[in-house]
Simulated assay, not measured.
Amino acid sequence: MSRATDEFFAALPARAPAVLRAPVTGTLQIDLVDDDHTDHWLVRISPGRAVVERAGGPADAVWSSSADLFERLVTGRAQGVSAVLRNESTFSGNVMLFLVFRQFFPAPPGVRDPRETAREQTGRA
Rank of each mutant, 00 (worst) to 15 (best):
F8E: 00
M1I: 11
F101W: 06
A55M: 06
F101G: 00
L20I: 04
V111A: 14
R72K: 14
G57F: 03
G80P: 09
P109T: 00
N94R: 13
V43R: 00
R115I: 13
A125I: 15
A118R: 13
A83N: 03
P17T: 02
G48F: 00
M1Y: 11
A10R: 11
G93Y: 03
F91D: 04
G93N: 02
R86V: 08
T5N: 07
P47S: 01
G57N: 06
I45Q: 04
P108E: 05
R44G: 06
G57E: 06
F105R: 01
N94P: 09
T27M: 07
V33L: 11
P23K: 07
R115W: 14
F101Q: 00
T90W: 10
D6T: 14
R72Q: 15
D113Q: 06
Q79L: 15
V52R: 02
F98M: 09
D36N: 13
D68Y: 12
A118E: 12
N94W: 08
P108G: 08
G26Q: 03
F8L: 01
A4P: 07
A55P: 04
V81A: 14
F101K: 01
L85K: 13
L32N: 01
P23T: 02
V81R: 15
S65Q: 09
F101C: 01
A14Y: 07
E71V: 09
Q121N: 14
R115E: 12
R54Q: 12
G123Q: 06
S64C: 10
S64M: 09
L85V: 13
P13Y: 03
V33Q: 10
G48N: 01
H37K: 15
R115T: 12
L20E: 00
T5F: 05
S2Y: 11
V24W: 01
D68F: 13
H40C: 08
L20S: 01
A16Q: 00
A78K: 02
G26A: 02
S82L: 15
Q29T: 08
S89G: 12
L69V: 08
A78F: 05
R72A: 11
